[in-house]
Design a protein around this nucleic acid. Structure first.
Lengths: 218, 218
DNA sequence: TGTACATCAGTGAACGCGCGTTCACTGATGTAC
DNA sequence: TGTACATCAGTGAACGCGCGTTCACTGATGTAC
């Protein structure tokens, strides 16, 4: 109870000095949007600080150099996605004990979350970085790869758990099945953007859900 | 017979002046690779002409400006892909009258062609352009969208042809099924690059083939 | 409560480099008569 | 076959602008005694 009150009166949860962290986050927010829209090289520090309401030298107080911006951006992004996935998975597993049905519920939540996310920032940072990766220092590319592999492991464990209970109707590569979740997510974002039709993302997620149900379902 | 001899002795088929077209193609070749690797903005005219063995002003003899390079690049790319798909479809349909079986053969050929292509230029230009689209003039983005829609129509017609003969086992969105071919192609390229494992592409194509077979097959 | 000092969160001016683009010119090849 | 001219496929030098980065400085907030 005391904690709750403390949380209410205290400034918004921020690790270091609140003001600095807030501007830093503002820069990261703008950077995310621009990089996904136009690419990393086409996004200048000047336009970021203008949008964030500080000067160019203020930027270099928060970031060692431009590559450091990319580094912090991907760290924050991967962290956010991981906690979001954790929450969705926990909710889905709460609603159903059977791993297959929990997974089908998860996919529904996941599709909704994707749509919501696309309404805000229209793209996936990992995909954007991947398609410009030779511009980045090795640390950024490594963080990117690590993030994708973490997603893959999550889905792979779950799919194998499902297959143990519901043997698949066809002999398929279970790792590929797990990977297809990320594959379809990134691929459908690209198509949605290319032809400017956001509805494609949800339709692809729904189809994929149906195929999973067909593969493992009774 | 005379034609065959003529073809043999004549210079390589080129529409306009052979020499100019050859350097132009060289520039486009290098540009494709760099843009897919690093992005459009990070690819300078200077590095392209250096690789092509001419000077910077030579570039502006062949291209009005940098956007014109993107324009010609995507036109050439879409043309190449279209003729390649035409050839693969024709071969697949030759080998089997039934649209489903022809399609399954096509998917095998398609997967092989993708792998081959990835060995050369490691990415899809459409995806690269899509993830930097705010950098390009409207004509380039339009050409990009038109290209993707042409691919979608091709697959959609074929899938509907299949569904007419082999009713799908589940009520699915046939347009989404058709779209998933492009979606998985682009998505698997991203994952393959992100974690540096080219084998992912073929595995995804194979899985998709299996799912199509399961959906429509007996 | 007041003072001294340290850290935080920036500012403002300047830098050199590389970028896309222009422009006047040129040598090689093609075409007309 | 030779000459006159046109087009092709570039060259070389210069341009101005914007980019990422540095550096000396500063006013506000936090901390120790």
């Amino acid at each position: 109870m005391a904690d709750v009150l403390a949380d209410k009166t205290a400034p918004p949860v921020q690790s270091a000095g609140a003001k600095g962290a807030r501007t830093r986050d503002r820069i990261l927010d703008v950077a995310y949007g621009r990089i996904v829209e136009k690419g990393y090289s086409a996004t200048s520090i000047e336009e970021l600080v203008e949008a964030a309401g500080i000067t160019k030298s203020g930027f270099f107080y928060h970031f060692r150099d431009k590559n450091d911006l990319a580094r912090q951006l991907i760290d924050r992004y991967l962290g956010e996605v991981e906690t979001a996935l954790d929450a969705l998975e926990a909710r889905a597993r709460e609603l159903h004990d059977d791993p297959l049905h929990a997974f089908l519920i998860f996919m529904k939540l996941y599709a909704e979350a994707m749509e919501e996310m696309m309404a805000l920032h229209k793209g996936c940072l990992v995909a954007a970085i991947t398609y410009q990766d030779r511009t980045f220092a090795p640390d950024v590319r490594q963080a990117n790869a690590d993030g994708v592999n973490a997603w893959r492991r999550r889905f792979r464990r779950w799919i194998e758990e499902i297959a143990a209970v519901h043997p698949p109707k066809r002999a398929v590569d279970l790792e590929a099945v797990a990977d297809q979740l990320n594959v379809v997510a990134d691929g459908s974002i690209i198509m949605a953007r290319a032809v400017d039709d956001p509805a494609i993302i949800a339709r692809q997620a729904l189809l994929q859900r149906e195929l999973i149900r067909m593969l493992f379902g009774g």
